[in-house]
Design a protein around this nucleic acid. Sequence first.
DNA 1: TCCGGTCATTGAAAGGTTTCAAGAGTCAGG
DNA 2: CCTGACTCTTGAAACCTTTCAATGACCGGA
Lengths: 336, 336
Amino acid sequence: MVSVKDVAVAAGVSLGTVSNVLNRPDRVSVPTRHRVQQAMRDLGFVRNESARQLRVGRSSTVAYVMLDVSNPFFTDVAAAVETAAEAAGLSLFICSSGQSAEREQAYLSRLEEQRVQGILITPVDPASPLLADLPARGTPVVIVDRTGDGESHCSVAVDDKLGGHLATEHLIEIGHRQIAFVGGPERLGQVRDRRAGAMSALSDAGLGEERLSTLVTDALTVAEGRNAGQRIAGMPRASRPTAAFCANDLVALGLLQACLALGLRVPDDLAIVGYDDIEFAAAAAVPLTSVRQPRRDLGHRAAELLLDEASNPAHVHQQVQFNPELVARASTRRGS
Amino acid sequence: MVSVKDVAVAAGVSLGTVSNVLNRPDRVSVPTRHRVQQAMRDLGFVRNESARQLRVGRSSTVAYVMLDVSNPFFTDVAAAVETAAEAAGLSLFICSSGQSAEREQAYLSRLEEQRVQGILITPVDPASPLLADLPARGTPVVIVDRTGDGESHCSVAVDDKLGGHLATEHLIEIGHRQIAFVGGPERLGQVRDRRAGAMSALSDAGLGEERLSTLVTDALTVAEGRNAGQRIAGMPRASRPTAAFCANDLVALGLLQACLALGLRVPDDLAIVGYDDIEFAAAAAVPLTSVRQPRRDLGHRAAELLLDEASNPAHVHQQVQFNPELVARASTRRGS
DNA sequence: TCCGGTCATTGAAAGGTTTCAAGAGTCAGG
DNA sequence: CCTGACTCTTGAAACCTTTCAATGACCGGA
């Protein structure tokens, strides 16, 4: 493994000069610089980032720990973060916790040990003690798609209660009185808040809580959505809900698919509303009504806050909240 | 920032003992161990991974540089890699080149400087010189979803020519004689090979090359698929192809969506075949016929090869190739 | 009492880079 | 010919961890 020392010997200069070529090329005379650069090429020199980092104390990397790589919503957020990070000259490493708290924990430890400039995270468990400790020990953390406690982090979120409200209000407006909320596990804040929003829409409309039944899923995936679809299709017509509000689009798409396969008409037998408005929602068998979140803004703003916290000593934590928006499509259109 | 030295002082032991607690706890007597661990907790000690790596020479990280985070095909591959990496006690960092050769280059350099254990990559440009140099300088590289030159890398791929062949053969069998290939840019090997497979299916069926027209897209995205759909819908009926074979499912879904919106019936006016069989293909407005790739096998096998190369001195490069499989659905079913 | 053997701990060296004060060399001005 | 200013280069220290040979303490056996 070739080091600066080898390059220095080959180029007939001191080790300090090689470092200067690397970091402050203007301070080195042109012929020397060329000689050193040639030596680097000849020897196949690769700077050792560990040693560099050890010396300067920080890396030029940020990380985004996301809940689920398979959810296009999060990858779109990641793409926006990537763009912002690149503009700031940083590399973005994406880690997927796959909704596992242990894996999330493991990644956070690794990232802290690596002294990354900062961590963006959509947490499995926002109350994790490690998450709260990180900033105190010098690693900025920004919570994405969840509202933090405000003590130790910035956060960028979308109002999930409002989203749930919008979705349910829409269903009530078009006449539904028996609505199923489909999503889980309960431990996810997204799930709790969206359901709470649904409840509030009911009470605002003067309807009782019993109008909303809940189908708990094990995860927010297409497969779990299909499962839920089978459960709904299996219900006797009288007690079956006439509309379903799903905690995200993956679940909604699975639900839609299962319902159609089992002979339920959408929206006539069952209206469906999803959440996130991922790209595939509009292209579904029955184009899906969904609650759109400004995902690029989310990623972009989160990256901005992180970079500010990492570089600005006067940084003050902020809780940014965007508003979601209902996009009505065929899956809730009567008589389509 | 607290270091082992601080911990040593606090616990009243030497620095070497602290290190032993960290790395070989069995060599330290129980009371000492507890004392040191308590000191670590009290002081909030976080091991400095840079220093560690500098000393031991290698990191415990692998990376997957993928073409496009927004394509569910790649994220499914990534999830499989993640699982394999975790089982081997390694962390996986995902990087997205976003189909940009410069960004890919930048990530590769960073990763090499970080001395990652190895790199999995679905390259924008498999002929990149950097890619060929990495293994010679000590960073194993496995090419995913592309066949490498065999000199310096392992590779795990799916036979794209066969895939293209299967798709087109299917279209020919059900009677299509004017077929459009939709995909691009040409520089992507996936696009070239799938198109070549389509060509070979034509000639095997005794049909001339002129039966396959090509609609070049700027990228393999839903938006580009929609674009292509508008172009096709705008053609006079006589010269319009009766079937489209798309280079991936994103393009196919966009194409499908645009066609339906513009009044073309699928499959009656236009049959569509996609590629990858992503989860959303089956849930589309017209369930999509697609060429399925064994994506979990792909990711899993790639990770295996990488780990072998990283740890086994007797490692010998392999080019693994899987076979794709046609999944016929409504988008090519006559008279559905 | 001395010896050989365990077991636990220590101290120093090494790893590759960056930084910075200091040194060497050059040149113009007096 | 000397001085001061300037440019370029140097050498050593520092960053934090791991490793390993060596030390010290202790115990049982002779």
